[in-house]
Nucleic acid binder design. Structure first.
Lengths: 185, 185
DNA sequence: TTTTTGTTGCGCAATTCTTAG
DNA sequence: ACTAAGAATTGCGCAACAAAA
């Protein structure tokens, strides 16, 4: 069947969104208030040596399939089981739920519909990434500005502190003088 | 043919690096003094300077390939011609001079060597992106902290200013009193 | 010089958000 | 309120470079 897919190929199948790594977990999927982003002045945390190790990630490659080529699609079925060979023994047909879209959108890869969808998504992706880049840049700038302002404020504080000290000192002098004068009078 | 291939993946392939793209121009690839991550998106790396983009955003989709298949190498001819079909008519064999090192470039996609390279790169990519994510997060945090600190400093300044004012006022009072006393004496 | 590692834009597909009907 | 269609995000792998080794 031309149906397309069927593609059993996707031998590897590994990918499936491995847990570790990103885990967007929605922490910052998209802020309603886009403002900052990166910067890293990080004083010491620059990751001197082995960053990941300390942090915890190994970057060990997921399954590292080795299948040749890739034929159809790179295997996409979503996060599900760790996938072992015997899975086939356990489950007669992989019918569980990974078809979802297939039916819904019988995209045959050549269909104009498919191409249109793809193209639209590609555009959206570019747009989104551009936005992200801008946001990051803004945050960086913002951090720099804040750092700058911070410095200014600290200077100001220093000046004021000195001024207060001076005034106090002067006042105490006056106080003494006044006292003397009082006595003398 | 198990080989298959033809790996339609990355179907389009047109891309070939829009000229501008990279060209880091070395302005600020990475500062010797790592403090802000700076780097990363120097600014114009996206794609070319299509007029639309410059103005705002175009996101008009590049070439919108539509081709399928691709056979072995996905048209690798480096940044050169815009790539049109007739190129074949113009150039008998695509041998001109951009061969570099056939040996290395001639990875057959099935070769273990190729797979290993890919796998290593994939790992590197994950690592790099993770790093970027962390960096971004740090910058965000930093910006927040700075903002906070800024607020504190401003409060401090306010207090000091008031104090100076008070002292000044008090001093002027004393001055007057002293004067009177002087006169009285 | 060559090889390896790090970055980065891009397209794909899954998922999540939005929104029109 | 609900669902479906479309836009926005996100993780992933690929390829082209740049940067280290």
């Amino acid at each position: 069947m031309s149906m397309s897919d069927s593609s059993p190929s996707s031998i590897c199948m590994f990918s499936l969104h491995h847990p570790c790594s990103s885990s967007p977990d929605g922490t910052l999927p998209q802020d309603p208030m886009p403002q900052m982003d990166s910067g890293l002045y990080g004083q010491n945390m620059g990751f001197p040596k082995t960053p990941e190790q300390m942090m915890g990630l190994g970057y060990l490659a997921y399954p590292s399939c080795l299948n040749t080529s890739n034929s159809e699609r790179p295997a996409q079925q979503n996060h599900n089981a760790p996938q072992k060979d015997f899975s086939q023994f356990l489950l007669p047909p992989p019918v569980p739920a990974l078809r979802q879209s297939t039916q819904k959108r019988g995209l045959s890869k050549d269909s104009v519909e498919y191409r249109l969808r793809r193209e639209r998504n590609n555009i959206a992706v570019r747009k989104s990434r551009d936005k992200a880049r801008r946001r990051i840049q803004l945050t960086q700038q913002r951090a720099l500005q804040l750092q700058d302002e911070n410095h200014r404020l600290q200077m100001h504080i220093q000046r004021l502190s000195h001024e207060v000290d001076s005034l106090r000192h002067y006042l105490s002098q006056r106080h003494l003088q006044a006292k003397e004068q009082d006595d003398n009078c």
